[in-house]
């Protein structure tokens, strides 16, 4: 790939040469009869640069998806050390209503406490956390990104509990030395309810509180959301990509299912 300096040098050389070639013609080149003059080459290079940049942005989006999905597979198996290594050194995590934990080592300890201070699942433990519905938004410079996801959860302990869970993430990512990492993880617990009776007949089992009573967070819960059957709309990091509808006449609301 050309650096701008080399490009500038190449351009001025070609400009000088094309001035010369008015006198000394025809230009001879092994490239064939249709010769690339300087400006044409510069144009081609510019088009290539554009393609490379766009391809890189798509690759970044795909890498961020892989990163969050890898997070899900580690979480399924309570692989806390692998999970921790997905974060930047000064990342923050905030699950449900447990408050915010800052920095890799605090995150590691938080995760271990989630998993009863052991690495890997205990016998009879189910911890499926499907990572679904990515909406990834890359920054202009391609060095950071935001992502909304939804987790669908099947969790529990054989002979003790079975739970349905669900909730969206609003996460942030940064690229460091060419590698994407999670810099901020925020998960909103819509429901965490017993299998029997589901969300229709049960309130949230833990009101979104996991380990914070024994392991206080670095900062309290950063937003004002409660637990099922209370509902909350986690803010979107993105605007409507097409544009919100503006009604021209009044519509009748809520005519039932």
């Amino acid at each position: 790939m050309y650096t701008p300096k080399i490009l500038a040098g190449l351009m001025s050389l070609l400009l000088l040469v094309s001035a010369c070639s008015e006198e000394v013609s025809p230009t001879v080149s092994s490239a064939g009869e249709m010769d690339a003059d300087g400006s044409e080459l510069v144009l081609l290079q510019a088009r290539l640069n554009d393609l490379q940049e766009r391809a890189q942005r798509l690759r970044d989006t795909k890498e961020i998806k892989r990163l969050q999905r890898a997070y899900g597979y580690y979480l399924d198996e309570a692989m806390w050390d692998d999970l921790t290594e997905l974060f930047t050194d000064n990342a923050t995590v905030e699950y449900a209503r447990d408050g915010l934990y800052r920095g890799k080592e605090r995150i590691r300890e938080y995760l271990y406490r989630l998993g009863d201070n052991r690495s890997g699942l205990a016998t009879g433990q189910l911890n499926e956390h499907f990572q679904l519905m990515p909406v990834i938004t890359l920054s202009e410079d391609g060095m950071s990104a935001q992502g909304r996801w939804r987790a669908l959860i099947l969790a529990g302990q054989y002979q003790e509990s079975a739970l349905w869970g669900e909730g969206p993430y609003e996460n942030e990512y940064v690229k460091q030395d060419g590698v994407w990492k999670i810099s901020k993880l925020r998960w909103y617990q819509t429901i965490m309810v017993p299998y029997n009776g589901g969300w229709g007949l049960n309130e949230d089992v833990n009101q979104g509180i996991y380990v914070s009573p024994d392991f206080p967070p670095d900062e309290p819960q950063t937003d004002n959301f409660g637990s099922w059957p209370e509902t909350f709309l986690p803010p979107f990091h993105f605007d409507n990509p097409v544009g919100r509808y503006v009604p021209s006449e009044s519509t009748t609301e809520g005519e039932g299912q």
Partner: peptide, 11 residues
């Protein structure tokens, strides 16, 4: 001189 260099550089 540059013209012959030119061909090389272009290639």
């Amino acid at each position: 001189l540059l013209t012959s260099l030119n061909a090389r550089a272009q290639d």
